[in-house]
């Protein structure tokens, strides 16, 4: 018995071949690729499946300024074969792209006059598009709390320094292992929450980093009185197809590639607490 299904003209499982516009090293193990996008729409917090030719594709968040519609900006940490293969790409090379996929960060609505962004490590990457937008909204009071392993791992430091001079933006940096030149905070990002001026009724909080860090940060924010519905986290799972077909990224009933990676904390809090779910 046959089915009546219309297939779209472009199979979302088939990648596009796109040209790399530039390669930039950010830190010793993090680099940024700018890739021509062909003007495809995307939302802050969404991800693409990116692969070097002959290598497996991997999910990578989009980290660029949403104002740049001609390119995808992907900031990638070298942790395995696939990301290392991407690190060899240079301007003019071809790269395989599928996407964008997933549900991104919520739009900061008018009722929220305060935006709190808490990120750790490369967790800052998917939050950059939102921060670009926030930097252009003088009425939105934005606080970024950003934790890194050491001062040399701090990403986008020039951009962050520029933003910290904006009247509406506060940037609070912290590292686990400072060097002698470090003049910011030491310790985990959670340490900076009790002393950040947070109005629980007007704040929307976006968190991205290692899952443990997100769990503890979210709890710290709840202690400050923020509603779990105003806290969002971005989950990392093994996304492969991007369409809820392959099953790899499941978190109980959620296909993280489809209903995530960004979730309101009240929807995901319980699932984050269960080991190995």
């Amino acid at each position: 018995m046959a089915t009546a299904l219309k297939l779209s003209t472009h199979d979302p499982m088939t990648p596009r071949i796109c040209e790399v516009r530039s390669f930039r090293r950010e830190t010793v193990d993090v680099f940024t690729l700018e890739i021509e996008s062909g003007g495809i729409d995307w939302q802050p917090g969404q991800f693409n499946m990116v692969g070097a030719i002959g290598s497996r594709e991997i999910p990578i968040s989009i980290s660029g300024d949403p104002a740049r519609t001609d390119i995808w900006t992907h900031t990638i940490r070298e942790v395995g074969n696939c990301s290392r293969a991407l690190a060899h790409l240079r301007a003019g090379d071809s790269v395989l792209m599928r996407g964008p996929f997933g549900v991104g960060w919520p739009e900061v609505e008018a009722e929220h006059s305060d935006l709190l962004v808490v990120s750790g490590g490369v967790g800052l990457v998917p939050l950059m598009p939102t921060l670009y937008l926030a930097s252009r909204r003088p009425a939105l009071k934005t606080t970024l709390i950003y934790g890194s392993r050491s001062p040399c791992d701090v990403l986008f430091s020039h951009r962050l320094a520029e933003w910290s001079s904006y009247p509406n933006m506060t940037v609070r940096l912290t590292v686990d292992h400072p060097d002698t030149d470090w003049h910011h905070n030491v310790g985990l990002v959670t340490r900076l929450i009790p002393t950040s001026p947070i109005n629980p009724f007007t704040t929307i909080a976006l968190i991205c980093g290692p899952e443990v860090m997100m769990r503890f940060t979210a709890r710290e924010l709840l202690r400050e009185g923020i509603s779990p519905r105003s806290i969002y986290v971005s989950m990392e799972r093994n996304m492969k197809c991007g369409m809820g077909l392959c099953g790899h990224c499941q978190l109980r009933g959620e296909f993280v590639c489809l209903s995530g990676p960004v979730y309101p904390y009240d929807r995901i809090a319980r699932l984050m607490e269960i080991p190995e779910l």
Binding site: K240, L245, C246, H248
Partner: peptide
């Protein structure tokens, strides 16, 4: 559940199982 494999320049969809550690 399926995995995707790249054999040289051929991209294939293959059965996978959630009982393998690589799955997650």
């Amino acid at each position: 559940c399926c995995d995707y494999q790249d054999l040289g320049e051929i991209h294939q969809r293959v059965w996978d199982t959630c009982f393998h550690s690589e799955f997650s």
